[in-house]
Each structure stands twice: as C-alpha cells, then as structure tokens.
C-alpha cells in the first residue's frame, strides 16, 4: 500500500525510475556485445623453439624426456637442423615430425586415424604434389596429422567429456569454420558446447574420434543419428545439421539450404517490419498523449 501511494503521488519520479531501468537495460544490452574495458589480450608467446616447462610439466606428456619423442639429436643429416643453413627450419615442426612415433603409445587412435578421411586426404596430398606449396596455404588448410589437432607439449590429460568436447569444437572449427558456425547455431552446439550438456553431441560423436568421416552419404548419416536417436529413420536423417552451402555439395542439400535461408530472410524481415511499425506507433502515441496532458496542466 505504501508503494502504491508513493507511485500515485510521485508519478514523475516513478516515471523517471522506469526510464532509468530502461537506460540500465540498454547499457546492459550494449555490454552484451563484445565490447568491454578489458585490454585486447595478445597471446603471450607463440614461439615454438622454446618449451614452456611450467606448462609442459603438468601436461599429459610431462613425465617424458625429450629423447622419448625426438630421439637423439646429433647435428647434421636427419638430426638437429643446422641453424641458419638447414632449409628444413623453414618447414613447420608438424610437417617435419615423424608422427609414426606416436603409435608407440597411441596404437588405437593411430589405427583409427589411418582408416579415416584425414589420412585419405593426406595420401592424396602426397601423391598430388609438393608439400611446400600446400603448406603455404592460408589458414593451414591441409590434411592434418596428429600435431595439427593435438599439442604435443602442452595437451592436458584427463579432460572431462564437456571440456574435451568444447576444445574439440575450437580445434575442428579452426579449419572447418562454417561447420563450427552452424554447429553452434544448432541445438547440439547450444546444449553441448554452450551449456555443457553431456547427453548432447560433440563433433566426434557423429563423425567419429580420429576417423573423422564425412556424413554426406545417407547411410552413414543415419548410422550416426542412430547412436543416440534410436527411432531415427531415413527421413529423420535428412535433417540438415550444417545448413551452410559448401563447395562441392550435392544439389539436394543446396536446395534445402536455399529454402532454409529464404525462410530465414523472409521471416526475419517480416518480424523486423512488424516490430519497427509497432514501436514507432507506440512512441508517437505516447508523444501525443504527453503533449495533451502537458496542455491540460
């Protein structure tokens, strides 16, 4: 009753309070964009010639000595590159390193990798041409080996499903950026990546861990759906998980994506028009009523 009386007595003030609330809300919306006072953070050190022992010692490989993976580095052919002279230092360590050495411990993962589409792409790359030319591609978009996805010195051990899944989105998304974007817009990405729902799907849940197979084939896609959605059928599997047209897609998907995009644009503009109209209507109406009211006083 107290509040009620106060509001009726102090209409100007209560209006001011509401205006202030709107203002605060507006400011909060602004801060929801990615602007903040905080400094743009530069990555501290990307230099790969130096190993940060603080991070290395707590990583999964932290107990290994250098020689376990790198062998004995005698200067000269095959061993340590000669500083300034050896052209090999112009290649990335991921191209130089012999990842067959990983198989010593990671036999299962290595086997799966060999069966997958990344290994297939690697084979094609080796047949088709010189690595030097490909390695200068922007964004490092060439067939990946172990080191492209996993950090050999700093990879943390014993990550949970959610944490591993989140990092997976970033790592896969570094090359497959349109897939990452559509995944994060979809239901799986929102629940699994953003909200940490363990029962939802991360990249490898559909595409397989280390095999990384494409699901353009309908049968393969249905098989992937069936892992979680037991009632799925062929029609269910025709849901477009990554609705972005990428070069070399079949016409069926291009059509579906076009329909989805058209509906999005049409619906979006209708919604925008309606909102703009009614906001303008309300605003002008309030102006007129305020004017009338001020006149009366």
């Amino acid at each position: 009753m107290l509040i009620k009386g106060w509001i009726y007595k102090n209409r100007d003030k209560s209006r001011a309070i509401i205006a202030a609330c709107f203002f605060v809300a507006l400011c909060s919306i602004l801060t929801c964009f990615d602007i903040s006072w905080a400094k743009v953070s530069d990555s501290l050190l990307e230099s790969s010639w130096f190993v940060d022992l603080k991070e290395f010692s707590i990583s999964a490989h932290g107990t290994l000595s250098c020689e376990v993976c790198h062998g004995v580095m005698d200067e000269g052919a095959g061993g340590h590159p000669v500083p300034g002279k050896d052209i090999s230092s112009n290649r990335r360590p991921t191209d130089r390193f012999d990842y067959f050495r990983c198989r010593k411990c990671h036999r299962e993962s290595y086997g799966r990798f060999l069966k997958g589409s990344h290994a297939e792409a690697l084979k094609k790359e080796k047949v088709n041409g010189d690595i030097e030319a490909i390695s200068s591609l922007p964004g490092d978009k060439r067939a990946p080996t172990c080191g492209h996805c996993h950090s050999s010195h700093y990879e943390e051990a014993r990550l949970g499903r959610v944490e591993a899944g989140r990092r997976m989105t970033e790592v896969c998304g570094a090359c497959h950026s349109s897939q990452k974007k559509t995944y994060l817009k979809g239901f799986h990405g929102k629940t699994a990546h953003n909200l940490g729902d363990m029962t939802s799907a991360y990249c490898s849940d559909c595409h397989g861990a280390h095999t990384c197979i494409s699901l353009k084939e309908k049968d393969a896609a249905l098989k992937a759906c069936l892992r979680c959605h037991q009632k799925a059928d062929a029609s269910f599997a025709s849901f477009v998980i990554h609705p972005a047209s990428v070069k070399g897609e079949d016409s069926n998907k291009v059509f579906k994506v076009a329909v989805i995009r058209t509906v999005t644009v049409v619906m979006g503009s209708i919604v925008l028009l309606i909102i703009v109209f009614f906001y303008g209507h309300s605003f002008l109406w309030i102006l007129r009523e305020l004017h009338e009211k001020l006149r009366r006083h």
């Binding site: 059928d233 029609s235 025709s238 849901f239 999005t264 919604v271 309606i274 909102i275």
Partner: peptide, 30 residues
Amino acid sequence: PHFFTSLFPGYFVNLAQVLHLYEAIMAVAL
C-alpha cells in the same frame, strides 16, 4: 521430430527451428 519426419522431409525441422526462434523474438519484442 521422429513422428513429424515420418510425415515431412527432415529439413522441415530446420524450418521449424527458424520459425520458432524468429516468432519468439517478435512475440517478446511486442
């Protein structure tokens, strides 16, 4: 989705997602 995809093709679920979101935005904004 299982029931409705037996009636429509799967990408209608995509459309339903788009419509559901945009209409929600409009409803809340109004």
